[in-house]
């Protein structure tokens, strides 16, 4: 067993357990912490795949900023009490959801197993060599600022818009209108199409 395989095994377990923890925890704070575990596992996997910069960015941005943000909002809104996991108002939602998940996994696994290495059909080494002479940061930076500079700039604009949007959305409104309860769909009933017996013959 190589080091890589061992690391992969351990991280895989961490990731999956963390994922299950996110989904199945009653307390949202526990979910957040499980998410942290998953993200860490992913970061180590990135290292395994020779994506050093990304591993670092993952820890800093994802774990360090996004999860923290989520925790802040949780504390802000006081949503730290336990959720109700037993009831499900929509009929068939859980069954169908699990089914969907299973089929999705099954499909992808089928592709991987049957296809083997032919499952990945892209062209090799189009843009830049991964394992070339240069190290990862250098290569990533070079591609970002030459081939992909336009998406980069657009993304920067996107970030700005997101920030402005968030500020606008979370402003305290002057009059808080409560979310109304929607009308029932079943009770509306159908009027009879013709009033043949009341109107009489035409």
């Amino acid at each position: 067993m190589t080091v890589e395989a061992f690391v992969f095994g351990v991280c895989a377990v961490v990731v999956l357990v963390g994922g299950l923890g996110v989904v199945m925890s009653r307390n949202p704070v526990h979910s957040a912490l499980s998410l942290v575990a998953t993200l860490f596992g992913i970061a180590v996997l990135f290292l395994n795949l020779d994506a050093q910069l990304l591993a670092a960015v993952q820890v800093i941005v994802y774990t360090g900023a996004i999860v923290v943000l989520i925790l802040f909002v949780m504390m802000l809104l006081g949503v730290d009490k336990d959720d109700d996991l037993e009831t499900e108002p929509l009929v068939g939602q859980r069954v169908l959801a699990v089914l969907v998940g299973l089929i999705m996994v099954g499909a992808v696994l089928a592709v991987i197993i049957i296809g083997g290495h032919n499952a990945v059909t892209g062209a090799r080494s189009v843009t830049g060599q991964l394992a070339g002479g240069y190290d990862n940061v250098y290569e990533l930076g070079r591609q970002l600022f030459t081939t992909y500079v336009f998406p980069l700039e657009v993304t920067a604009g996107l970030l700005t818009i997101a920030v402005v949007g968030a500020v606008v959305l979370s402003r305290r409104p002057k009059d808080v209108q409560p979310i109304p309860e929607p009308e029932s769909m079943i009770d509306q009933g159908d009027e009879p199409l013709t009033l043949t017996h009341e109107e009489g013959a035409h």
Binding site: L69, L130, L158, L169
Partner: peptide
């Protein structure tokens, strides 16, 4: 890694950025 191409990581880079923006708006 499989295709020996840096583009995979570039895409992930962008995904990270956009995910961050998206979380921000979602939390708002």
């Amino acid at each position: 890694k499989m295709l020996n191409d840096i583009t995979g990581q570039v895409i992930v880079f962008f995904v990270l950025v956009v995910a961050a923006a998206e979380v921000v708006v979602g939390l708002g």
